[in-house]
Write a protein that binds this DNA or RNA. Structure first.
Lengths: 255, 255
DNA sequence: AGCTACATTGCAAACTACGCAACGCAAGGA
DNA sequence: TCCTTGCGTTGCGTAGTTTGCAATGTAGCT
């Protein structure tokens, strides 16, 4: 559909895997060397690829910087990073950090469990996560204003992924009320039947919930009750990160 | 030179900053909407951008995954991450993790100092670092085999950035001998006159030096002697990371 | 309902980007 | 030393991709 752009994309992919010579690039694309050269030069000008001293092309820092810019919230990631890793060590489970950006919730960091289940989880940093069929989605939704919640859900078409999915607005609202009351959310296989989660909210300096931490495991590793046992550690982590963002738990009442 | 690719690049940049509508995209490029649409569709197919429920385009996870793939050595980053952050806290200075990839040394992680100097440092994750005019470069070079070192330096054209740069092979070799002996390197403003560093090597399970950690500060924050005071913490960090990679400090002598 | 604004598709024209061929350059062998 | 080989680079005419137009489809708003 857009030939030259497709070619550029392929070259970026290749360069990400291993250093690329011009000849290799033209071979793989099946084009003349001059064509491959022009594409690479254009990408190089944008620092999407970088030319090494040896004349090969490798993945460029421009794209890495854009990734970090897009994950934005570098503040959040910076502040959270160490806490997430500590939480992973103390629980043994996979830890996710998800953030509300625009009208979606996106994973912005992930600390894999050393257990073999890490590779089976479909989550990826940068990927959007279901807003109504995930623990992080529900815990964020539950703490938003009614208007914000309506806005985020206005574009959603509910889909019943599994038997436990809250697949309509009514059922979801009831669940969100429960979540808001207790302050944390679970995911009882609501998107993937075998994936369990517990999630806790993260607040910024204004007290707004802007993100969430979660613990995730596949059921053969830990069932929901076993994950719930880790709740104190999870809540401690979310509180620590919120503090780093400037949140003060007890808003001093006016005298 | 490659018009359509350039347009695609511009759209990726925009999408990284904020969600992009089709109209906005075509306006910025100065092209017809159908043109912008086709570009975005191509990028979307590669997951270089992602279409949100609201119909806007945002930076895609495909590029984020490629970034992580290219930074490769996800093992190294995972293992090192927590230690780097601890080191930052204990020293107060900016921490860098740099890795030997192909024939270059590239920053793969960075933990900024809260001090105001962080923004003044030219380092960026994904960017190549001078191999002979940096502490991380020298400490890695110093621990390579003669053949490897020759290979890496064969494409280098020496340049005297500042008065302290080791700008020819002879002076560099003498410096590398000193570095190899004591096991750590300094950067006394050898690339940028006001930037000071100390660096220590990281070894993999075979004992090979494959990366380095460094502490960095601009001179007004900390001079070289003040950085050297942090050497014990730095060396402890590099040792811990090496251990996580499977390095055993004392190769057991044959009985 | 009708309107407006937006996204999307088909098609012919035009301009971009393609392949060709020639050149420059470095490395290795005779 | 010269020749050969392999690689990257440049200029140019043409083929063909990509572009803009116009029409259609779709959703939100008054």
């Amino acid at each position: 559909m857009a030939q030259s752009i497709q070619r550029a994309i392929n070259l970026i992919r290749l360069a990400a895997e291993h250093p690329l010579t011009l000849s290799e690039a033209s071979d793989v694309l099946g084009v003349h060397k001059s064509t491959a050269l022009r594409i690479l030069q254009t990408l190089e000008a944008a620092r999407f690829v970088r030319k090494t001293g040896a004349g090969t092309y490798v993945f460029g820092s421009g794209l890495i910087e854009l990734s970090e810019l897009a994950l934005g919230s570098m503040d959040l990631r910076q502040f959270a990073s160490a806490h997430l890793r500590v939480l992973q060590r103390r629980t043994g489970h996979t830890v996710h950090l998800a953030q509300l950006t625009g009208d979606e919730i996106v994973y912005v960091d992930k600390v894999d469990s050393p257990a073999f289940d890490a590779v089976k989880l479909p989550s990826r940093v940068g990927r959007a996560v279901s807003i109504y069929a995930s623990a992080v989605g529900k815990v964020i939704l539950a703490h938003l204003s009614q208007a914000e919640r309506d806005r985020l859900l206005s574009h959603v078409t509910f889909e019943r992924y599994t038997g436990t999915t809250f697949a309509d607005r009514e059922a979801l609202d009831a669940e969100l009320a429960r979540v808001a009351e207790r302050g944390w959310a679970i995911d009882d296989g609501e998107h993937d039947a075998y994936v369990m989660c517990v999630a806790a909210p993260i607040r910024d300096s204004r007290g707004q919930v802007i993100a969430a931490v979660s613990l995730t495991a596949i059921e053969v590793i830990a069932n929901l009750d076993q994950l719930k046992e880790k709740l104190p550690l999870l809540l401690e982590t979310s509180a620590l990160i919120s503090q780093e963002l400037g949140y003060t738990p007890e808003p001093s009442p006016a005298p």
